[in-house]
Design a protein around this nucleic acid. Structure first.
Lengths: 216, 216
DNA sequence: TGTACATCAGTGAACGCGCGTTCACTGATGTAC
DNA sequence: TGTACATCAGTGAACGCGCGTTCACTGATGTAC
C-alpha cells in the first residue's frame, strides 16, 4: 500500500488531480499491454504514449522512463499478493491442508496468468541485480515464503517433517516452484498434462512438503 | 550437438577456417560477459565488437544480430545439460535416491551459476513466446523432465507415489523448482539459509516427490 | 622452396533512422470572492 | 452566479545522439603447381 496511486505525484512536484490520475492509470495499463504484446525488448515510451492517444511529453510528466512505469506495475502486483498469502494461514491437517495447498496454487497461478508480462520482467530485472526490482519482488515473495516457513517449522517441530529440511529453504523452494509453474505451465500443457494437473500436482507437492504427509 | 561450432558458417556462406572460428568464439564469449555485466537491456552489437577489439562489421559476418548470438549460447547450455540428465538414471532407493537427488540439484544449480545470464534471457524470451528460444529451452528442460517423469511413473505404478500425482506434471514442477532455485538461490541466501541448505532442501523435495518416501 | 591465386577474415567510414527527451506554449479545471 | 486567477494537464515540434547496418576495400591465410 502507499506505493502507487496514493503518493502519485507528477515529476515536477505538482499534485495530481482527478484528470491526471486517470491519465497516469491509462499510461500504466498501456505499458502492461505493450509488455504483454511485444515483450520487454520492444517497449518504447513513444508507443506507450501513442497507445493512449497522447504524446511522449505527457508520459514524461508521470514517469522518468519506461522502467519506472514497469516498476509501479510490479508494486501493484505485490499488493495483489496479500489475499494469496492469507490462504496459507489456518490448519493444514489432512483434507484441509490439501485444499489449502490447491487454493494457494490456483491463486498464485492465476496471479501469473493475469500479470505474467510484468512479473516476468520484474524477475529478470531482479535477477540481473536491479535493486528497485529486487525490492518489489521481495515484497511479493517474502510474505509468501515466511508464512509457508512458519507452517513447515511447526510440522517439523512436531516431528512430522524431516529434521533435514530447512524450513526457510523449503518454503523458498516451494515459492520458486510456484513462480516458475505460474510462468510456464501453459507451455508444459502442450506436452500432456491438463491445466488441472498443472494445478493439482504442484499443489500436492506443496502439501507433502509442508506437512510431511504423503497424500493417499 | 551439431548446433554451434560444427555447422558454423559465415552469413555470406563462406565456410569458417581456424581464424574465423576463433573470432566467432570470442564474440560469443564477449556476448555472455556483457549479458552478465550489464543485463539484457544494455546488450549492444557495438559493445560486443569493441570488447573483442574488432569492429561491428566483423560481428555481422557471424551473426544476424545480438539475439542470434545469445541463441547460440542458449543451445550450448542445452548441450551442457546432457551429463546432468544422466544423474537421474539408476536406482532411487533410500540413500542412493537421496544422493542422486542431491547430485542432480547440485549439478543443475552449478549450471545456473555458470550460465545464469544466458539462461535468464533464454527463459524470458521463451516465456514471451519467441519460438527459437522456446526450442532451445525445450532442448534443456525436456530431457530432464522426461527422465524424472519415468522415475516417478515407476514409483507410482509400484504404489509408492500417490495416484493423484500426474508424473509428467510432477516432473515439470520439480524442474520448475530447480530452474528458479538456480536463478535466485543467491538472493534467498541473504535471508538465512546457507548455500548448502539451498541445495539439500530442494534435493529432499525432489527425492520425496520422485519416490513418495519421507526422509528420516 | 617459391610464386600466384583463391578464398577467408577484418574493418574504416559513413549513412540514416528512430527513439528519448525537452521546451515553450496552449488549453482545461477548479476555486475564491 | 459570474468572473478572475492559480494551478493542473497536455502537446507540437524540434533536437541530437547513438545504435544498427552496410559497402567497398585491405590484409591474412592457405594451397596448387
Amino acid at each position: 500500500m502507499g506505493t502507487d496511486q496514493d503518493d502519485a505525484v507528477a515529476l515536477d512536484g505538482r499534485t495530481l488531480g482527478r484528470r491526471g490520475l486517470e491519465t497516469r492509470r491509462r499510461l500504466l495499463d498501456a505499458t502492461e499491454e505493450l509488455l504483454r504484446e511485444n515483450g520487454l525488448r520492444d517497449l518504447r515510451v513513444v508507443d506507450i504514449a501513442r497507445r493512449v492517444g497522447s504524446s511522449p511529453a505527457t508520459f514524461y510528466q508521470y514517469f522518468k522512463d519506461a522502467d519506472e512505469a514497469v516498476l509501479v506495475l510490479a508494486w501493484e502486483v505485490a499488493e495483489a499478493v496479500g489475499p494469496v498469502v492469507e490462504i496459507i494461514d489456518g490448519s493444514w491437517e489432512a483434507d484441509e491442508g490439501l485444499d489449502r495447498a490447491r487454493r494457494l496454487t490456483t491463486a498464485y497461478v492465476e496471479l501469473w496468468d493475469a500479470h505474467h508480462a510484468v512479473m516476468r520482467v520484474r524477475n529478470l530485472a531482479a535477477d540481473e541485480g536491479d535493486r528497485r526490482f529486487r525490492e518489489a519482488r521481495l515484497a511479493s515473495v517474502q510474505q509468501l515464503t515466511e508464512h509457508l516457513c512458519d507452517k513447515i517449522a511447526a510440522f517439523r517441530e512436531a516431528g512430522r517433517v524431516s529434521s533435514r529440511i530447512d524450513p526457510y529453504a523449503a518454503a523458498a523452494s516451494l515459492v520458486a516452484m510456484l513462480e516458475r509453474v505460474g510462468a510456464y505451465h501453459w507451455d508444459v500443457e502442450r506436452f500432456g498434462p491438463s491445466p488441472e494437473a498443472m494445478i493439482d500436482t504442484p499443489a500436492l507437492i506443496v502439501y507433502q512438503t509442508v506437512t510431511g504427509s504423503q497424500a493417499a
